[in-house]
Computed example of a mutant assay.
Amino acid sequence: MTAKPKLRIGLIGTGFMGKAHVFGFASAPKVFDLPMEIELATVADITEEAAAAAAAAFGFARGTADWRSLVADPEIDVIDITAPNALHKEMALAAIAAGKHVYCEKPLAPLASDAREMAEAAEAAGVTTQVGFNYLCNPMLGLAKEMIEAGELGEIRGYRGLHAEDYMADPAAPWSFRHDPAGGGALADIGSHALATAEYLMGPVTEVMGDCVTMIPERPDGRGGTRPVEVDDIGRAFLRFANGAQGSVEGNWIATGRKMQHDFEIYGTRGALAFSQERFSELHFYSALDAPGRRGFRRIEAGPDHAPYGRFCVAPGHQLGFNDLKAIEVAGYVGAIASGGAEPFGFRKGLRIQTLVETIQESSRARAWRTVA
């Protein structure tokens, strides 16, 4: 039996998303027949002690406090970036210059101009990229897209999307990198997920009317004082799609009581769909073709008929989890690296989402509709 080629991973950052990426790398080879063998080579953190602890906890061979040495290491094939948003560009460009494939958690970069530079550099170097939008890997979103494209909803008229959480709802919560104007704000941080889902299901957004508001104007700075907040706590937008449909999205990180509400509703001439991330192994379908007196939203539960659910569990209705979606994302990315084929959600698509974010922000400032480039 021929040994599979190795894919050696260098991870930068060990916070929430760093751990999620590690779980994806760990479980993907056990769930999927990957064309390459994943090896956790080196992890970088802010101190040598933290890096050593992370290496031991996550199963990496080595730890380092110098991410640049990780990027320069000829033994590493993929640089995985889960550091704060404002650092993505420098790290990614260094990795691309070193000939590495790059896996970067969203948002790709604080500015669309930065994201464009990153995408163009990756394309020129011929490396394979991935931006972490793992909610799109949910089999139920795949089913929704399939139903829309098959015409089961008829002509699509309307879309409503929402990503709401409450991790910034407490005004006593300190100012953090998420509040940095160079890479923060609710629209960029979580509204980007709502925008990615909207375009995945509905196709291109052509025009936007934005409304980005700051509800908590200052936060503790950690030194006994306060620091002004210059980014949005809530970012909303009306949307016009190329297919003629109209819609809206919202990114809200002060939605008290919401921990993970990533929802959408789609309305067509023959039916409708409703989905909530809070019950993300379910999709609800309404058919206008049902007989009068028999109409209503029916629940479709995820099961082996909805690939790749069956690789995780042979029984329907037993549900997937957040980290399972990361495993699906990793599998798609590894397949693209091995084949040299299309990237599932590469830097060019990450640029697209950042372009939408910036166009909505500019529309909000101008209080006017804006055409998306």
Rank of each mutant, 00 (worst) to 15 (best):
L239C: 00
H179D: 07
W369T: 02
L40H: 07
M215R: 15
P84C: 02
Y267F: 08
H101F: 01
A121N: 04
A327R: 08
V314I: 11
C104R: 00
E207D: 11
W253E: 06
T355E: 15
M215I: 08
A54C: 13
P110Q: 10
T82L: 07
R352V: 05
L320H: 05
A288H: 02
L239S: 00
F238Y: 07
A291K: 14
A72I: 05
A272R: 11
F280H: 12
S176H: 01
L40V: 08
M1V: 14
H179G: 01
D189C: 13
H163C: 03
G99A: 03
A186H: 12
Q354M: 15
I216L: 09
T82C: 11
G224C: 09
G271D: 07
A327Q: 05
G185W: 03
V314T: 10
A20T: 07
C104S: 13
F25G: 06
P29D: 10
K100F: 02
R365A: 14
N243S: 02
Y167P: 06
E149A: 12
L108Y: 03
W67E: 08
S363T: 07
A115N: 03
R62I: 12
L11V: 01
I266A: 00
E165I: 12
G151F: 04
G317C: 10
S364R: 01
E49Q: 08
A57T: 07
L356T: 04
K89P: 04
P304T: 06
M17F: 15
D180Q: 08
R240H: 06
E48H: 07
A54K: 02
M36R: 13
G151Y: 08
F60W: 05
V314N: 11
I156L: 01
A125N: 06
K6Y: 00
P204S: 09
D170G: 06
F58S: 04
P107I: 13
P220W: 08
P304S: 06
G24R: 00
R295G: 10
T214N: 10
G191I: 00
G335W: 04
F275Y: 15
E120C: 07
Y200M: 11
G24F: 00
R348M: 06
S339M: 09
F264C: 04
R367F: 05
A373P: 15
A26K: 15
I156Y: 00
D77A: 12
E278D: 14
G332H: 09
G257S: 13
I12H: 00
T256S: 10
E301I: 09
R227Q: 15
P139W: 12
G63P: 11
E282I: 07
A302E: 13
D233A: 11
G183C: 06
F345I: 06
D114V: 01
L93I: 13
A119K: 03
R227H: 07
R311P: 03
Q277L: 03
P304Y: 09
A50R: 13
S276R: 12
G185S: 14
E117L: 15
Q246R: 14
G151N: 05
M140S: 12
I9A: 00
A327V: 06
P220F: 01
A125Y: 07
G18D: 04
Q277H: 09
Y200I: 01
N243D: 05
A119R: 04
K19A: 13
A327P: 08
P304Q: 05
E207G: 02
A3T: 15
M1N: 09
F16H: 12
S27R: 15
